[in-house]
Amino acid sequence: MKKSGELQNSPQAASKKVARQKVLLGLVGAFVVLLAVLPLFASGFWMRTLTLLFLLAAMAEGWNFIGGYTGYAAFGNVAFFGIGAYGTALSMLRLHFPFFLALLVGAAAAMLFAVLVGLPVLRLKGHYFAIATVALATGVGEVADFWTDFTGGAAGLTLPFFHPIQLSNYFFYYIAFVLVLFGLGLTYFIMKRKLGYSWLAIREDEDAAKMMGINTTWSKVVAFALSALMAGLAGGIYAYWNTFVLAEEVFKIEYTLQMILATVLGGPGTVFGPFIGAFIYYILITLLVFFLPVGQLHATILGLIIILVMVFTPQGVMDFLSGRKRLTLSALLENIRTHKV
């Protein structure tokens, strides 16, 4: 037996781990309270920035289900964002549904699409799955762009403003914030249950998972549909907030990349990882673009930062926050050694 592991079993180590989890939970709790009262002080600019950040965090939480926990590198989740946006917009414009009902219709449409597409596509693995999802997202975007009679095509869809307009910023801030909390709660809830265990088993070894009685197709489709739920809700909120939906805007592949980046930066396969990663990513990019005198170099610098984070903490910053690794130079260098290709 390796001796290195013994420490983790000792009662002292266990209580230390519990203590650390409590501290982490306390910090996140304090942070959530801070965000809840922030609109009392924050400027309109920061409220809008944070609203976008929340939508990204929610999508990242969704991506975490399929990409982080189940281990399927989905590269087309923006399709769900776009379908959620169009579903919500079309329900409001054509069916005159109130916003919240329309939002549910949009999210349901995204989930339905995930199930229909997931059944065949989730049979693929690795690169093949990744490429198929990119292709699907691009395809749906094209349909939205050219099916002019239904989607308005290149002219887009214009939605009514939120009423009363003075409260608009607050409304969208809080609804996006609630969505993020819902995502955290949903993740925690699922990972305590059989569905969560089945995702982890599939990620670690799908054949063994199958043989142990897991209906892997069903588990994967549920993971995919729940990631569609989060992205679809984010898309619907974004549509109403933006009051304008255009295919080339809501099906941008950058959104997929952002949700993956946020998850990977924070820690894939962890409850808080995507939430924390979304903050790191979005605050960095906002600082670089708006506040630091770096001119056109902001994308380059962001890229550099991402490379450094990936090199030093390939499992995301949650590795350090949860105490699995200590934030020391030797631990950082160890990461390079163990993950070199």
């Binding site: 059989k194 265990y197 089945s198 142990m212």
Partner: peptide, 16 residues
Amino acid sequence: FLGMTVRENVAVGAMF
């Protein structure tokens, strides 16, 4: 299942 504890590995069998 490398990313899971020994106990969780075995629990998967008992669950499914």
